[in-house]
Design a binder for these strands. Sequence first.
DNA 1: TGACTACATGTCGGATCTGACATAACGTAG
DNA 2: CTACGTTATGTCAGATCCGACATGTAGTCA
Lengths: 110, 110
Amino acid sequence: MREQKRRKLEARGWKIGTTQEFLRLSAEEAAYIDLKVRLAMGLRDRRRRRSLTQADLAQRLRSSQSRIAKMEAGDPSVSLDLLIRSLLILGASRRELSRIISTRSPVPAA
Amino acid sequence: MREQKRRKLEARGWKIGTTQEFLRLSAEEAAYIDLKVRLAMGLRDRRRRRSLTQADLAQRLRSSQSRIAKMEAGDPSVSLDLLIRSLLILGASRRELSRIISTRSPVPAA
DNA sequence: TGACTACATGTCGGATCTGACATAACGTAG
DNA sequence: CTACGTTATGTCAGATCCGACATGTAGTCA
């Protein structure tokens, strides 16, 4: 969440905390979701870099536009397995996967 | 496969090639399996380092001994999702996951 | 030899995930 | 405004995965 938006919401009476606090996630669940978000972002980046629409990508992955949308959104109905297989099909190397996973947080600490 | 063993088998008339050649896997499939094997090894290492039996670990993960065995064997019935979640529950950090994934090949090139 | 421990393998009902489809929401060019 | 292209959301049948259980295999100790 961007600083500006945070201040705006706080001004309207919202309490701001980490997603983890709010949903009372265990450390593993939080790490799992964090990982999923990273992979999702990695997938979206790769798709955009190639100027593909979600529909285009769906065809390559033999999936559907709606599932691509869910993947990129980190939807709970999407497994890490599918995200990783998709990245591999897009030609991501283990090294790149590794980088995607260990990159600095996509969501700045609250 | 170790060099010594390879020579021994070749002496007995076996043709030696990569697993990929033999099973005619696509690059993605090969990368997927390679990844699975790495995670499987990572899981086994972590378990052994703690001197836990598969049954012990199963209890912690709320799974079963047989599934742990399949995980460590990289069985096709086990998803990356389960392997990764298990590692996270064992306290593996993103950095460690990243290292497991990008480490030099567990199966030396043929 | 048998008894015990740890790990591997096969199977199956139920849970979860996936692709497909419909449709809604968003942006933007005319 | 409408029309179009793209992305998001909801649903569902069929596919896949998971935990559990039974059973098999391998090693050790007496």
